[in-house]
Design a protein around this nucleic acid. Structure first.
Length: 947
RNA sequence: GGGCGGGUAGCUCAGUUGGUUAGAGCAACUGGUUUACACCCAGUAGGUCGCAGGUUCGAGUCCUGUCCCGCCCACCA
């Protein structure tokens, strides 16, 4: 028996513990079953649980629980990310509290400190996720700095290097002066800034006393100027090309050059060229073989090249001072307010400094292949439109700066022979394990971009590249994974890179076999004992895009999609929306508009928040959060709880331990239209629900279930069944509730599990119960004649409409539900029979003893429904005037509709061109409305006679 | 500058290949303890489908233009 009131927190804790103790979420390998693997997007160890996590992980949990229900081998791999730059910043802040920098404590101690922090706090976020009910296989938990994971990262690096994908080079990179590290292009976000455009006079060397005016937003880089560029066809400047100007600070002659990249209509059309601090300038500099003079140091302060007056000054301070200085020299013509885009460091929140620097770069592997697998639908994006964003990025892809000047992360596995020239590759040692004589070498100081290690998440979580580990983890069975659930904001950071990395790193047969690597494709297959992909439907063949590289096309055609499918890291990518507040603003700490999920769980239960959030998550659109919806989620749970309490008020001395025995309790002779109709509706609901789930439309799926449960089952079936509780009816309740628990379970696992046991549905966990297919359900129900089910559903709808109309009449006259009013009903033929058949229910639902048939029209308030004409007789007096006004309005409304329909049916074009069904429908409607109107008019006349 | 979303009831959203009178939930309002549930039940009201054209017998839906809002990409110093 169930408790009187539903209190989520206790039962949620209880069931999570029981599930965990029974290890029911631990993966099981069974060759007969297909596998369904989901990789958690590893949260940062520094992260705190926010609404995005809740949505994201609820969806994953729903998918993985559904997979279990469908008898697939489910495997949800949890883990965390070491969060390179983020944790480093955090640790530096900690140190700063003690007036220390990382250099004070040294590299080793600093890393140790970070490790300690991670030990202490790193799993908090996962513990918080447990409260949500996530059914991860905790025995497979992975952390991106685990020894085996680190090994995999270095292995990938070495492999890429050996194959020529990784190189070291001097490039203009994005430098963050606060974190003191290089960043990738993706980590730079552009922000609109209110700046000033400074117009500065440069004196001609060849024509003293005459000036060339340039406009710049960055006067502090003047000392790095090496040229002035104009557009070659700019008439204003053509005569000056080849002449020189004096650089106004750190005076030196610099040439005037011509380059197409200069825009004539911006500023003065003359551009100062500072190759060391601007990407465009850098490119122009390369074309003209100009030197690059760096004047800003890594800490954002000007260096000695900036001259004694400015050396050591912060770059923003210097901007003002340089402008002031130029002004005193009469070289600042004017300054003009302007709006421009400035690149900011995503993490540190300060403008990045383009800087010339020696870094490690990765030339992306398998770019074309990565495009192809998405284009061909082998990897399916949901919503599909994100594929465009993905393609666009891949088409414009540039080499990736993967080195970071941080201490926290995977240290680059490159060693230089002590005391030798680092620029000479002869002096390099690159391997996973390092040189055998480490005392003679020093390791590269840099670590890898965190996203480099994230890119091998699908591989390293399953034991790659170690063959033994891969066998232990059943790599060949669980890879490729099924669904990736993530936000579209990390398409480039993560999704695209995982695809490229997986394709490349796996597509190299050598690596899967031996170090010598003589294997071919057949041997790879041989290392894969189970083939889950064969049970999965292949995507429809898609015709090749003509734009694609044709040689690649034929190569891939010969390999076949079969092989390809084994290398992709996942089959579907579901992109969630971003959760915003009710004003549409992004949730952020600084705005304080983000509710604490744990508070919400406390208040509404994990089940409530799960289903509430899903019900407000339209497919692929941002989500406007409202606590109200979460409250509704809890209400749904309460309603479910109470529906069981209703059932338990009636005889419980019956067997409920399986669907079979429940069905056995049904006596087919006791069945009435309502029973069959509700079963039919349930089957229809399951169909629609499955369809919505197949399309990843979770909010629709939830809504479909809820409508059946609340409106059809509770509001109608429970109510009508109250007047005829018998064994058959109770069995039907038990059957429907059984199915509802199964269907709702992936969304609200805790309460359904509790009710499952409290109602004696079985001894095992609901979480392990399989979902029956519609065919199986029909088989169970085979003793019931379902041939007329649609007809009966329609019949019930007609009765419902009658009841609604009658309630409407009552409400209109302000009659309390309990007051016994009299109804009269005029019907003919079938309608008459139907009403007679449902008379008991109708009386019960209208709370009346008096519902009589009448042959003739009455002078009473009236409603006309499909089944016939309904009159209400209130004991008191009737306000004839008011009633006539009501009728008049109704008649006018009908007249309007009749006019529309008549006009349509008089239109010859319509009759000629519209499909027959539409014309028939219009005719039928017209007929019904005319009939209804005539009847109302007759009543109107009779009422007039009374008056 | 390019690309992608979105604009339907006070709010959040549905609305299938164009086809009867555009739907749901919440909020509002009215009434109500009946074999579970007031976290409930019954009912009422509320809409020029952003705007303007076009195609069509027929447009929320298709086409063109346009205006807002939001993202993403791009080297206008």
């Amino acid at each position: 028996m169930i408790e009187v009131s539903y209190s989520p927190s206790q039962l949620e804790q209880k069931w999570y513990q029981l599930w965990s103790e029974s290890n029911i979420f631990t993966r099981k390998v069974s060759p007969q079953k297909s596998s369904c693997t989901i990789l958690i997007p590893p949260p940062n160890v520094t992260g705190i649980l926010h609404m995005g996590h809740i949505l994201n992980n609820t969806i994953q949990d729903v998918l993985i629980r559904r997979a279990r229900q469908k008898d697939r081998s489910a495997f949800w791999i949890p883990g965390t990310d070491h969060a390179g730059i983020s944790l480093q910043i955090k640790m530096e802040k900690e140190l700063a509290k003690q007036q220390l920098t990382r250099y004070d404590v040294g590299r080793e101690a600093f890393v140790e400190l970070a490790q300690e922090w991670r030990q202490k706090h790193g799993s908090i976020i996962l513990e918080q996720l447990e409260k949500l009910g996530v059914s991860c296989d905790w025995s497979a938990i992975k952390y991106t700095l685990d020894p085996d994971y680190s090994h995999a990262v270095l292995f990938a690096f070495v492999k890429f290097y050996q194959q020529g994908y990784i190189y070291r080079g001097l490039r203009l990179i994005n430098w963050c002066p606060v974190s003191m590290t290089a960043l990738s292009d993706e980590e730079v976000i552009m922000r609109q800034q209110n700046s000033f455009l400074y117009y500065i006079k440069y004196e001609f060397v060849e024509q003293p006393g005459e000036f060339l005016v340039i406009a710049t937003t960055r006067p502090e880089t003047i000392m790095g100027d090496v040229a002035i560029a104009v557009h070659p066809s700019d008439k204003r400047y053509q005569n000056f090309i080849g002449l020189h100007c004096w650089r106004p600070i750190v005076r030196e002659a610099i040439p005037i050059i011509a380059d197409e990249a200069v825009l004539q209509d911006f500023g003065t059309g003359a551009l100062k060229i500072t190759p060391a601090h601007d990407i465009v300038d850098f490119e122009i500099g390369q074309r003209h073989k100009l030197d690059a003079i760096g004047v800003i140091d890594k800490n954002g302060k000007l260096n000695t090249f900036a001259g004694p007056e400015f050396a050591g000054m912060d770059r923003f301070e210097a901007r003002k001072k340089v402008a002031e200085y130029l002004n005193t020299q009469g070289l600042l013509l004017r300054e003009e307010a302007c709006v421009n885009n400035v690149g900011f460091s995503e993490r540190a929140g300060v403008p990045i400094e383009p800087m010339l620097s020696e870094q490690w770069f990765l030339k992306y592997p398998c770019v074309e292949e990565a495009k192809l697998v998405v284009q061909k639908g082998l990897i399916h994006f949901c919503p599909e439109r994100w594929a465009k964003t993905y393609m666009h990025w891949l088409e414009n892809i540039k080499d990736w700066c993967i080195s970071r000047q941080l201490w926290w992360g995977h240290r680059i596995p490159v060693w230089y022979r002590k005391g030798t020239d680092r620029n000479d590759t002869e002096n390099w040692h690159i391997s996973v394990d390092g040189p055998e004589d480490p005392e003679n070498w020093e390791q590269d100081e840099d670590v890898l971009d965190t996203w480099f290690s994230s890119a091998i998440w699908p591989l390293a979580t399953l034991g790659w590249p170690d063959e033994k580990m891969m066998n232990t983890m059943n790599f060949n069975y669980f890879y490729p994974t099924a669904d990736l659930v993530t936000g579209p904001d990390i398409i480039f950071f993560w999704v695209a890179r995982m695809i490229m990395f997986s394709l490349h790193l796996l597509d190299t047969p050598k690596m899967l076999l031996s170090e010598e690597g003589e294997g071919d494709e057949e041997e790879i297959r041989a290392t894969r004992p189970y083939d889950s992909s064969q049970e999965v439907q292949s995507p429809e063949p898609v015709s090749f895009d003509s734009e694609l590289n044709t040689s690649l096309e034929s190569e891939w055609k010969s390999k076949g999609d079969y092989l390809l499918e084994k290398y992709i890291p996942f089959k579907n990518v579901y992109f969630t929306g971003i959760i915003r507040d009710h004003l549409g603003r992004k949730m952020s700490k600084s705005l304080g508009n983000s509710p604490d999920p744990l508070d919400l769980i406390e208040k509404y239960g994990a089940d409530g928040i799960r289903i509430g959030l899903l019900s407000m998550a339209p497919n692929g659109q941002d989500i406007l959060f409202s606590e109200d919806r979460v409250a509704q989620g809890k209400k749904l749970c309460t309603k479910l709880w109470n529906s069981f309490r209703f059932r338990q008020q009636n005889s419980m001395e019956v067997d409920r331990s399986s669907v079979g025995v429940i069905i056995e309790r049904i006596d087919v002779h006791d069945l009435e239209a309502d029973d069959i109709a509700v079963l039919g509706k349930l089957l229809n609901t399951i169909n629609e629900f499955e369809e919505a789930m197949d399309d990843y439309e979770f909010n629709r799926a939830v809504q479909i279930l809820q409508t059946f449960f609340w409106n059809h089952y509770c509001d109608w079936y429970i109510e009508v069944s109250k007047s005829r509780i018998n064994n058959t009816v109770l069995a039907i309740h038990d059957f429907i509730l059984y199915q509802l628990l199964l269907l709702f379970h992936p969304f609200i696992p805790f309460i359904t599990e509790e009710l499952w046991h409290a109602h004696g549905y079985g001894t095992g966990f609901l979480a392990e119960e399989l979902l029956e297919s519609k065919e199986q359900l029909c088989k169970y129900l085979s003793k019931i004649d379902l041939s007329r089910v649609e007809e009966l559903i329609k019949e019930i709808e007609l009765v419902q409409n009658l009841v609604v109309a009658a309630r409407g009449l009552k409400a209109q006259f302000g009659l309390s539900a309990a007051r016994d009013v009299r109804f009269y009903f005029k019907a003919e033929g079938m309608a008459k029979e139907i009403v007679a058949c449902h008379l008991r229910d109708i009386k019960h639902l209208l709370w009346t003893q008096f519902f009589e048939e009448t042959e003739e029209g009455l002078e009473l308030p009236v409603e006309i429904v499909e089944l016939g004409t309904l009159y209400i007789n209130m004991a008191g007096s009737l306000d004839v005037g008011a009633e006539k006004r009501r009728l008049r309005q109704e008649i006018e409304n009908l007249e309007r509709l009749i006019a529309i329909n008549k006009k349509k049916l008089q239109n010859e074009d319509f009759l000629e061109r519209a499909p027959e069904g539409v014309i028939e429908g219009a005719k039928k409607l017209l007929g019904e409305n005319v009939e209804k109107k005539e009847e109302l008019e007759a009543i109107f006349l009779r009422l007039s006679a009374i008056e």
